[in-house]
């Protein structure tokens, strides 16, 4: 198992270097000079432009800039934001727990509902439940996040008043970050009602961010289950007299899980992409909105640093998924 994990880790290295090169190049091939964007309608003189170029280090050859960036990465220094002048590393880890907390909740929500829904649909193939659940999944998958979020806010927060509109916690609660996870920090703070407030703020963004992965997981579970259910060993299991719960839940589901785990792993990328919109709408202080803002401002260190860190996270998640395959299916491990 360890050997398997290490071999996967080894493939990580060229990917990491590739990502470092792409993240550096990506923002630079976009049109738009960060200094001109910063000056806005006002414009700036040639001398001032030259001075700022020098200050940001843009007057140096591109390979020198790249070398600095690369050596910085290995020293754990991703540079400072042009705008806030704070280290990219600090900014990322201030905001990342918010994105992680929301993404984890969203994936738990998606799996908790999507997996049973897929199983129920497969077992009831062609019947009402199947059609109902799969139509629901199709709607969920096709729904624009922006529209869905606003609809939920208007109905659930506005008309019904069941949840707060946006933010991470009620404004009356105020405590230091310990873990960066609001649910945990609110518990640690010991303030009455803080945890409930943090949970209530999580509900709508979790539903919105989890909807697409939920739909994908439900559909994937259904098709994987259908495939497995038609296998000979399932017929054998049934012929042995095993009850439907044991056949579906143990024999079929375990084998159907491999493609589902793949989908869950790939959903992490979708979640981070979806987080951009969800975070903007729900005023959720995570990395999605931070990255979009930095792209518009052409804040090179932030964009390249954030891309690199996000890519590393997605790679780590996929590495974990690979290892999980091995746990679920010993055949993969031995290959």
């Amino acid at each position: 198992m360890l050997k398997f994990a290490l071999s996967r880790l080894f493939t990580f290295i060229p990917t990491f270097i590739g990502v470092a090169v792409i993240s550096f190049g990506f923002i630079r091939v976009l049109p738009g000079d960060p200094i001109v964007v910063m000056a806005g309608e006002r414009g700036l003189s040639e001398e001032r432009y030259a001075a700022l170029q020098q200050q940001f280090g843009f007057d140096r050859p591109i390979y020198v800039q790249f070398w600095d960036y690369l050596t910085g990465i290995f020293q754990g220094d991703l540079g400072n934001s042009f705008v806030t002048n704070r280290p990219v590393w600090d900014e990322f880890f201030t905001l990342f727990p918010a994105t992680l907390e929301l993404s984890l909740c969203a994936i738990i929500f998606a799996v908790a509902i999507g997996l049973p829904a897929g199983v129920i649909a497969a077992v009831n193939r062609g019947k009402f439940f199947d059609r109902f659940l799969m139509s629901g999944a199709l709607i969920g998958y096709s729904m624009p996040i922006f529209w869905w979020a606003l609809l939920l806010i208007v109905v659930v927060s506005g008309w019904l008043g069941w949840t707060p509109v946006s933010g991470r916690i009620g404004l009356m609660y105020f405590f230091d970050d310990v873990t960066g996870f609001m649910t945990i920090d609110s518990l640690l703070s010991g303030q009455d009602g803080a945890f409930a407030s943090a949970l209530s703020h999580l509900i709508l963004p979790t539903i919105v961010l989890g909807t697409i992965p939920l739909a994908v997981i439900a559909r994937q579970t259904r098709s994987a289950m259908l495939e497995v259910l038609s296998e000979d060993y399932i017929r054998t299991a049934r012929a042995k007299g095993l009850g439907p719960r044991r056949v579906n839940g143990v024999h079929a589901l375990r084998n159907a899980l491999i493609p589902v785990v793949t989908v869950i792993g790939l959903s992490v990328g979708t979640l981070l992409a979806g987080a951009i919109l969800t975070e903007t709408i729900f005023s959720w202080p995570g990395i999605g909105k931070w990255m979009v803002d930095s792209i518009f401002r052409r804040d090179y260190p932030v964009v390249q640093g954030a891309l690199l860190l996000i890519a590393v996270i997605v790679m780590l998640v996929n590495l974990t998924v690979d290892v999980l395959y091995g746990l679920i299916n010993p055949k993969i491990r031995s290959r």
Binding site: V165, G167, S283
Partner: peptide
Amino acid sequence: FAITPDASVRYQRLQAGE
């Protein structure tokens, strides 16, 4: 200052008294 980037959400927050 409750930072709320989306104009429609600001409106909802105002309505809700947030």
